[in-house]
């Protein structure tokens, strides 16, 4: 029997059963249960296997990927419908792609995607809301008549995030290095947190990592350990956010062709920005 959106919304837990790294060394944990509402970071050096881990999740790995990991949903093997029918897929994956290859206008692309994800388009204006969301994240507005292939890197990532949040609207969202997206990252996090989902961020960003409930540390292709954000780190998080906001401020000034002075480093209004 076909599953429907409402059923995939009943997901409460994803489980990662251990696989192994590139040299065959087993993951450092036997299993990891991610519960609804968890915000999780995946950290590690470039090439440590972060993207591979979220690909395992997105593919509902069943010992059939190079890592040998197994993914369970609500403690069970996911039904094949999750992969065979996009309308049943409980996962939205925002990849690092910064270009689209689809030779379609934005409106047509979003309408087709909404159709196969069974997102009500007419009643809820999903296509328009997706565009509005995307345009909150990017400095260069996207129009519905733009060709997908003409979008810049920032526009592409903004549209992918908006599409995943509004058109897919899945209980599980995987985001691969959103900080590299050339988009308004703080606004993205703020908008995303308005939804109750399992969020898994692959990230090099201390701000995202410390705002997570826990972080999965990857090394040489294997899960090395899982660190829960402790009380000390929670206290540090606002300070890290201040640093981060100061750097964003400097970045914006430089992008806009302004000079940077000592006061720009000191004048960050911490209260307002965090």
């Amino acid at each position: 029997m076909a599953l429907h959106r409402s059923e995939s919304a009943l997901i409460e837990e994803i489980t990662i059963l251990a696989g192994h790294g590139r040299d065959g060394t087993p993951d450092g944990i036997d299993r990891l249960d991610l519960r609804m509402g968890d915000v999780v970071s995946v950290v590690g050096r470039t090439g440590s296997g972060k993207t591979t881990l979220i690909n395992d999740i997105e593919l509902f790995a069943n010992g059939n990927t190079p890592t040998g990991r197994t993914i369970l949903i609500n403690g069970r093997t996911p039904p094949p419908e999750y992969r065979d029918d996009p309308a049943c897929n409980p996962i939205a994956l925002i990849t690092q792609h910064t270009t689209f290859l689809s030779d379609l206008p934005v409106a047509e692309f979003l309408h087709i995607h909404a159709r196969i994800r069974h997102t009500p388009v007419a009643a809820e204006g999903a296509v328009e809301r997706t565009l509005t969301f995307a345009n909150e994240l990017t400095g260069e507005p996207i129009s519905l008549s733009s060709q997908m292939t003409e979008l810049s890197g920032g526009q592409t990532r903004a549209l992918l995030i908006a599409d995943a949040t509004i058109i897919c609207d899945t209980p599980i969202v995987l985001l691969d290095e959103v900080e590299n997206a050339g988009i308004n990252r703080s606004r993205a996090l703020e908008l995303l947190r308005g939804y109750r989902k399992i969020f898994i961020f692959v990230t090099h960003d201390p701000r995202i990592a410390l705002l997570s409930d826990y972080r999965i540390v990857l090394k040489d292709g294997r899960i090395d350990q899982v660190l829960h954000t402790d009380a000390g780190e929670r206290d540090l998080a606002p300070i890290v956010c201040q640093f981060d906001d100061m750097l964003s401020h400097l970045r914006d000034l430089i992008r806009l062709g302004h000079r940077v002075t000592r006061s720009d480093v000191a004048s960050v209004d911490v209260e307002k920005r965090t």
């Binding site: 994956l93 689809s102 995607h113 196969i116 992918l160 599409d163 897919c168």
Partner: peptide, 25 residues
Amino acid sequence: IDRVSQAEREVFRARIQDAAPTVRV
């Protein structure tokens, strides 16, 4: 499939099914 985003993969699947509804993807 690793060369395109999930969204594009799904839209491509829809284009196949529109052209050939009985073919399994």
